[in-house]
Amino acid sequence: MKRVIALVSVLGILIGLTLVLSGCKSEAKSYPSKSISIVYHSSAGSGGDIFLRNLGKALEKQLKQPIVIENRPGGGGATAWGYVAKAKPDGYTLLGISSTIITGPLQTPMDVNYKSFKPIAQVFYDPTVIFTSSKSEFRSFKEIIEYAKAHPKEMKWGAGSPGSAESLTLKYIMNQVGAEIQVVPFEGGGDVAVEVMAGRLAAGIGEYAEIAHLVRSGDLKILVGLGSERIPGLPDVPTLKEEGVDFVFEKVRGLMAPKDTPDYVVQKLVDAIKKVYDDAEFKKYYTESNIIPLFRGPEELSKVLDQQNEFFKSMIGK
């Protein structure tokens, strides 16, 4: 036992020494001179986390510094956001965002919201779609809405939890077309897909990425997409606008930084992000994962977030 303890302590001292020595590299003026962490509000293995890990790997090649994904789940996002808002604005702590950064603070009161951060860029958007079982009698969005109008409160649709982007947009769409349905909340799009396939739900709303493989295998069919344009690879699926509802929703995936991060750091990151789309491995990842590349710089991102914030704010009150 004593030998074990001695061994372990020697090991400990050695590790300690290497760490101290490796840290002594002088800090260069140019950014980035050390590893960058990207903080995310859900745990390792969740959809957004895997996206960031892949993005991080592609960015590493551009910035020539390691990128670490830090998962700080908890508090419905408040833990991660509070941490980054208070972090040193030196560009070494960044925040990965999804649409939760808008809906989260609207649902539960928090000290932070998207305005507590400096926008860097939107990198992708997640297409949101309305889908039904391929065995379903409804062949188009118009058909299903007509049925819903004729049978108020009868149809059951699956969506995310009450405050989620999916639930709120679905509510808005139904208000617009003047139909009444019953929404059954689920934790994720995969669960909704099962219920829709099994015929227990008439239709569902969710991220295209989560159900794309079920569409390809012929189990589900997409009635309508919520984006501004038709989804690449799905030329036959109309957008909501084309179906007569003037509404666009595109889930943001992007990066933000602490408020006082210097502009040259943001610029450097923006330049690097612009280049990652051509990274062969990363390209393979995002095309296979069915997220759509969409670059928006700091000002544009800030505008989009403002719009979405206004929209969800108005929906949550209702």
Partner: peptide, 13 residues
């Protein structure tokens, strides 16, 4: 995620 990443669509197919 790993399957999709490599272009394989799980499902009956």
């Amino acid at each position: 995620g790993a399957l999709v990443l490599h272009g394989i669509n799980p499902g009956p197919l």
